[in-house]
Design a binder for these strands. Sequence first.
DNA 1: TATAAAGGTTCCTGTAATGGGAAGGTCAAG
DNA 2: CTTGACCTTCCCATTACAGGAACCTTTATA
Lengths: 138, 138
Amino acid sequence: MNIGEASTASGVSAKMIRYYESIGLIRAPQRSGSNYRVYSIDEVHTLRFVKRARNLGFSVDETATLLGLWQDKARASGEVKDIATSHIAALETKIAELQGMVKTLKHLAHCCGGDHRPDCPILDDLAGLSPPEPRKGH
Amino acid sequence: MNIGEASTASGVSAKMIRYYESIGLIRAPQRSGSNYRVYSIDEVHTLRFVKRARNLGFSVDETATLLGLWQDKARASGEVKDIATSHIAALETKIAELQGMVKTLKHLAHCCGGDHRPDCPILDDLAGLSPPEPRKGH
DNA sequence: TATAAAGGTTCCTGTAATGGGAAGGTCAAG
DNA sequence: CTTGACCTTCCCATTACAGGAACCTTTATA
């Protein structure tokens, strides 16, 4: 199987397969006589694993660790759970941040006439001209 | 006021102030005889505006637009509201994505013993060995 | 068979928004 | 006058890719 087929089979672009190889996330596959990369089914499975991990928001570094644990038949599931758990916490922090932004923006947009007048609470807030986030209850 | 003071007063690092100038987000300030950047109060206000917009998740490009609108005394608030509104939508999409990741990971982590046995539903899912997201009700 | 299209190869560039640091000029205090 | 804190420009690194140039190989077609 050359890189195009492996790409289709795994859902990882050929470009990314080469990239993952270059950074050492996956091992270099065998080469054909004409220097084409040749992939086995197992290698495609590895690519799929990587794809799934990336889709779940794991960084390439985290994915490398998970991949190592996956390929280690004697690994303990505790390690994996720890990685997943701290990843969940990081995601939740990010979510909270974004929700804070949304809340502020919604408040500002709500106060904004959205008409043809130049008055704009959003800009006023950005400029620091009005207290956007009441420090005390409302 | 030189760049260090402007940085302290605005909360934008000196490094970033130079960067914003280099990409044209802010205008180049005057220079002292010894080629030091010299900032006015107004320029510090601009930097604060930029900081606040970036904190609210607006990209540098969006910030440039908002800045233009802010400095345009004849602008209509509708334009600003539109930008804010579509930004809110983008943030909410991102939030939903992250929440999806968290949900899947929590499910997997919940199913994972976290003990010393090699069994691990998280890795099994990443490898595509088990149906992680039931397509039908549970 | 000649050729063209569709694949593969490496290598370089760019992205967004910074952080870090080197090499060197300037300013204020001791 | 030296020291240290500041400033200047310029280059490199980051993350996870995408795009493209230049060139080689395989396959399909005229």
